[in-house]
Amino acid sequence: MSNAKPLHEGLFSWPADTPSLIGTRCLDCGEHAFPSQSACRACSGQNMAPADLGSEGTLWTWTIQSFMPKTPYRTDETPETFTPYGVGYIELACGLKVESRLRENTPEQLTIGMPMKMEMITVRKDEEGTDLLTFQFCAAEEQH
């Protein structure tokens, strides 16, 4: 993925062999946040430090996006080439639940509590042909 870069800086470590979600941790009350916050929503404090939130978790809830969204959705897809995608919240080791696209896109593939891992996907290409990346989660174990 040499010709690739994050769609939005600061959401995950990049470049990295195993990209990790990046958030913040409140030095006053210990609560984590994602994306990074300059102030704490739990205690209103402003002593926030960067935090590596990891790349693994379990599925807390899910749904499936079955039709192509209108704007602000922005990909290179057309309604004809659109592929449904899952959406879920992944409960991370720190307890924070992060919303994410899911590779799995049928009800049969998704169960609350299943182990999940993060991967990179291309959202679209920019004007120079560079792949713009974001994170998504997928099943951590091979499905039968």
Binding site: L7, T61, T63, I64, R74, G88, V123
Partner: peptide, 22 residues
């Protein structure tokens, strides 16, 4: 930020589906 909408997470219907699913 724009990434949230551009990557397809900004639909109220998804939230409602996920809340009742849980």
């Amino acid at each position: 930020d724009d990434w949230y909408g551009e990557t397809g997470l900004m639909l109220t219907t998804q939230y409602f589906g996920m809340k009742i699913q849980r």
